[in-house]
Simulated assay, not measured.
Amino acid sequence: MQDNIYAAPEANLVDTEAGAVNLAFYVVSPVKFFTLFFFTLGLYGVYWHYKNWTLYKVAYNDHKPMPVMRAIFFTHALFSVIDMRIKDTGKDLKWNASAWATVGVIALVTSNVIDRIPASGTMGALFAFMPIPLTLVYGLALLQAQRAINVSCNDPQGKSNRAITWANCIWIFLGAVLFTLALLGVFLPEE
């Protein structure tokens, strides 16, 4: 019982019940995560950041900037709070949050810079495809964070969110169309 009758009730945000999924962050299976990330050409990463910050804000009663802004700019901060969550829950997972965040940010920034280089000649064709592996490296960094999230939320395999929904299928289809158009743009001769 609290001494201050006007204080908001305190809730235990760490779920101690074995097997219960705690949604302090966005739980998703690694296979579903990488499928959506790959077929949306990395755009799923923006949604992933947004969803994690939204759930974090609710779970921890956070009043800092909106999750939309955090989805764009705060990768290191997100990885840090995921790491703190793992430590707070006493889970046994060794991962270097700062290193993975750095790898992801460098890959994403480098991909965006290379994407701005005009694609002409042999070197241009090489640069035209460089953003793809760099985007996949960014996805790998986010996947490491996803694994940490799943462990911290008592769902290491992400079983509670492993099914591909009809909305996921629409995003996969749109990403496949965009990827096909990008390939046509690279390989079709200029007039």
Rank of each mutant, 00 (worst) to 15 (best):
I72Q: 13
I72F: 15
F73S: 14
F73D: 13
F73W: 15
F74K: 15
T75P: 01
T75H: 10
T75N: 11
H76S: 03
H76K: 00
A77F: 05
L78N: 06
L78R: 04
F79M: 08
S80Q: 08
S80E: 09
S80T: 07
V81H: 05
V81M: 06
I82M: 04
D83E: 08
D83S: 09
D83N: 07
D83M: 00
R85K: 06
I86Y: 04
I86Q: 10
I86E: 10
I86F: 03
K87I: 01
K87G: 00
K87N: 06
T89G: 11
G90F: 06
G90R: 05
K91M: 07
K91F: 03
K91L: 01
K91G: 02
D92F: 00
D92V: 05
D92S: 08
L93E: 03
L93P: 00
K94S: 13
K94A: 14
K94Q: 13
W95C: 11
N96A: 07
N96D: 15
N96L: 03
A97M: 01
A97R: 00
S98H: 11
S98Y: 09
A99V: 09
A99W: 08
W100N: 02
W100E: 02
W100S: 01
W100P: 01
A101Y: 02
A101G: 03
T102W: 10
T102L: 12
V103D: 04
V103F: 08
G104N: 02
I106N: 04
I106A: 13
I106G: 04
I106L: 13
A107W: 11
A107N: 12
A107S: 15
A107K: 10
A107Y: 11
L108S: 15
L108Y: 12
T110I: 09
T110A: 15
T110V: 15
S111M: 08
S111F: 03
S111Q: 09
V113C: 05
D115A: 10
D115Y: 06
R116V: 04
R116E: 13
R116P: 00
R116H: 07
I117N: 04
P118I: 00
P118Q: 05
A119D: 11
S120R: 10
G121Q: 06
G121L: 04
T122R: 07
T122V: 11
G124M: 13
G124D: 13
A125D: 11
L126M: 15
F129T: 12
F129H: 09
M130T: 12
P131E: 09
L134I: 13
L134K: 11
T135Y: 06
V137Q: 00
V137T: 01
V137N: 00
V137C: 01
V137E: 01
Y138T: 05
